[in-house]
Amino acid sequence: MTELWTPDHGAAAERTRLAWRRTVLSASVVGLLAARPAFHPDAGPREWVTAALSALGWTVLVALAYRRARGLGRRPPHPGRRTIAAYALTTIALAVLASSVVML
């Protein structure tokens, strides 16, 4: 398998790496919007905690994507496994956090 490696003609690894980068950009938009209320003049502990938690979620999303993008540099690339489940669950956690903030 490893010795029969041929060049990445379809640029599959490259395109997947760029897809991770795009996803990080989308996650950054969510992270910035979720942290925004903490910078309001009337912001209290609730806004600070929310911003800290969403910044934590954003950090996880960036770190996972960075690690996966680096892993794609291997020849041949391994399919993603736990990273993908972790990414989806972190995204869901952000949605739950934002929903609870809106509801409370």
């Binding site: 795009r22 996803t23 938009v29 690339p77 399919p79 990414y87 995204t91 949605a95 809106v102």
Partner: peptide, 29 residues
């Protein structure tokens, strides 16, 4: 591996769709 990576890109496209909806919800709020 190309099939697995294509599956992964499809997942990422859906995750971006989900993130866009979340960003929309935050924007509305």
């Amino acid at each position: 591996y190309r099939f697995s990576l294509a599956n992964e890109r499809t997942f990422l496209a859906w995750i971006r769709t989900g993130l866009a909806l979340i960003a929309g919800g935050l924007g509305v709020a």
